[in-house]
Computed example of a mutant assay.
Amino acid sequence: MSQATGPSGKVMLACHDLTRIYREGPQDVTVLDGLSLEVRAGERVAIVGSSGSGKTTLLNLLGGLDRPSRGEVLIAGESLLALGEAALGRFRNRHIGFVYQFHHLLAEFTALENAALPLIVRGQRKKAAESRARELLAKVGIAERAAHKPGELSGGERQRVAIARALVTDPSLVLMDEPTGNLDQATAASILALMDDLARTTACAFVVVTHDPAVAAHQDRVMRLDGGRLNEQIEPA
């Protein structure tokens, strides 16, 4: 990716008329209703909203983990709907980093192996993948725990491993679901600083779902999800 000094003209993520309807018994429940969003390269967007408003559903759609009932998602100009499951998996590995609210680390692997896994799945040699993973574990302040398995780590440490795993592939877009929820204030600040650096130097775009007003205020834009639609919010909630 090219060097950048902040949000550029290139649209990294775009969704149009995004709708997700779930069937619950005899009723259809509309979670997202004709939602649209654009995020440019190097831009950091926070999404806030009440519990149950559909924030995680939106992240799953943006990352291709779920399919919309209507509408489309484009990342780096590529429509996710146009990709079959195998091609979509390869595309996610190349372009998208995920930080899940509940980590989803593999219990039998060490922190280093978990962080390196996306590169190994891509076909990179283990030594090179683990070297890159070690760099990211150092950046999130957990290098000394590289040989420990998730069960031996605190919640905050597991979260930092998950963040390293999301960033290890140098993705075009990072989707984060409550990324600082289990972190102390100093560690959370270091993660936000790392996001700043990556947005500035690699043009990576971030979409961050958060309940934390400080995290929301740190992003370039804050969007509120309400009634299935996104609205620009001047003052973070």
Rank of each mutant, 00 (worst) to 15 (best):
G89R: 15
C204I: 02
Q185E: 12
M176R: 03
A138T: 14
Q27I: 11
Q219D: 07
G9H: 03
A138K: 15
N114Y: 01
A205Y: 04
I142F: 14
V45I: 08
K139M: 14
R160W: 04
E85R: 14
G34W: 01
A87W: 05
Q3I: 00
S36T: 02
E24V: 11
V222W: 13
L136S: 15
E108M: 06
P171G: 01
A46H: 05
A203H: 09
Q159S: 02
A189K: 11
A82Y: 09
G34I: 00
S53L: 01
D17Y: 00
P171T: 05
F102H: 15
G34D: 01
S8D: 07
R165N: 10
D226L: 09
G181V: 06
P179N: 04
V73A: 09
L173V: 03
V222C: 13
R40S: 02
A147R: 11
E135S: 14
G49N: 03
L173Q: 06
S131N: 13
S69I: 04
L173N: 02
G227C: 04
L183M: 02
D28M: 09
G84L: 12
G227A: 03
N231R: 13
D184C: 05
G25K: 04
M12G: 00
L198N: 06
V29S: 01
K55E: 05
S53D: 03
E24T: 10
I21E: 12
P236D: 10
L35T: 01
G52N: 04
R158G: 04
V174M: 00
R132A: 14
M1V: 04
D177F: 09
M176P: 09
I96E: 03
P150D: 03
D28H: 12
A203D: 04
R20W: 08
L192N: 06
G52V: 02
I47A: 05
A162V: 06
G34V: 06
F109N: 02
G228Y: 05
D220Y: 11
E152W: 07
R165F: 07
L61T: 01
P213Y: 01
E38W: 00
S50Q: 03
V31M: 08
C15R: 02
L225C: 06
D226K: 09
I234L: 15
A166Y: 01
P236E: 10
G228P: 08
T57Y: 09
V48I: 07
I75A: 05
V207P: 10
D197C: 03
L83K: 12
D33Y: 02
R90P: 11
L13Y: 03
A216M: 11
H103K: 09
V208N: 09
M176I: 02
L175P: 01
M12K: 05
G49F: 00
T187R: 15
L173P: 00
A214D: 09
R165I: 08
H218G: 12
G64K: 06
V73H: 08
K126C: 00
R125G: 14
G123F: 10
R224G: 10
A143V: 05
G123T: 11
Q219M: 15
P236Y: 08
G6Q: 00
R158L: 13
D177C: 12
A205F: 05
A115Y: 12
A76V: 07
G156R: 03
V39N: 02
V29R: 14
R132M: 14
A107S: 12
H218K: 10
A146G: 07
S53Y: 04
R158Y: 13
I191K: 05
R229S: 11
L230S: 13
G89D: 13
N182W: 02
L62K: 10
